[in-house]
Amino acid sequence: MFNISYFAPAKLSEALEYLYEHKEAKVLAGGTDLIAKWKKIGHPDMELLDIRNIENFAEISEGKDGLFIGAGAKMAAVQYNSAVNEKFPILAWAASVVGSVQVRNLATIGGNICNAAPSADTVTPLIVYGAEAVIVSKKGERRCLVKDFFTGPGKTVLQSGELLKGFVLPYPEKGSKAAFSKHGRRIGMDLATVGVAVNACVDGGKIKDVKVALGAVGPTPIYVTGLEKFAGAMANEAAAEEIAALAEKQAKPITDVRGTEEYRKDMVYENVRKCLKKAFA
């Protein structure tokens, strides 16, 4: 008979000990992805570490060096949190378009990232906001920029025994403005065919800094590189188009049931252009 061995500790130390002992254990956060996948493959045996009882794992708090969002924070919590809405509006927006209400009441931001699905909605905002993932294990704590968190489809930098604790989002620079776009096939309940987040800091009509991240167009979320050269350029339509073209070049989409490679590339260009236009405005 198939089985699940289930552990839901209240203490972080217990969780880390469990992870250390059970190399194959899966971390259960909201479960919307994990349980659905487990059912799809015939609900085989599984060891589960449920993190929902761990103290502070769902907290969202404003610290000195930035906003901390616990890995166990539900999408709905991120969507409606006032600090997130005020300082990181496109993260709140991205959270609000994850699945459906029911999904957002279960799914967590940590789960969205740890699944390492290239289409995860909240990843691109986290990347362009320069968020750092806080990773804990029995050995201690380390940090990793979200843009460097992913190593392949479904694969992350998390080592055996490590657990994602949450994210630190540095407060945005004055004058920076972010924009987000989720391009799907239908409006309700969809995975992104292309996801785009941009964050631009404009000073006196000139670009000081611009970051672009792409979702669903490669084996991992893509952080568009080579944008440093736009520092000092005019924040106008031409720059937006040039950056969009660059983003399109760096996108490595595949053709699947959700869209063709060609269309996804086109949509990277169009959505990056559109987002930058907003961010530059």
Binding site: I4, G31, T32, I35, A36, L48, V101, Q102, V103, L106
Partner: peptide
């Protein structure tokens, strides 16, 4: 579940 909608087919009973 605690006042919020969830899809009960994706929630393990132990949760």
């Amino acid at each position: 579940m605690n006042g919020e909608t969830v899809t009960s087919c994706l929630v393990l009973a132990v949760q």
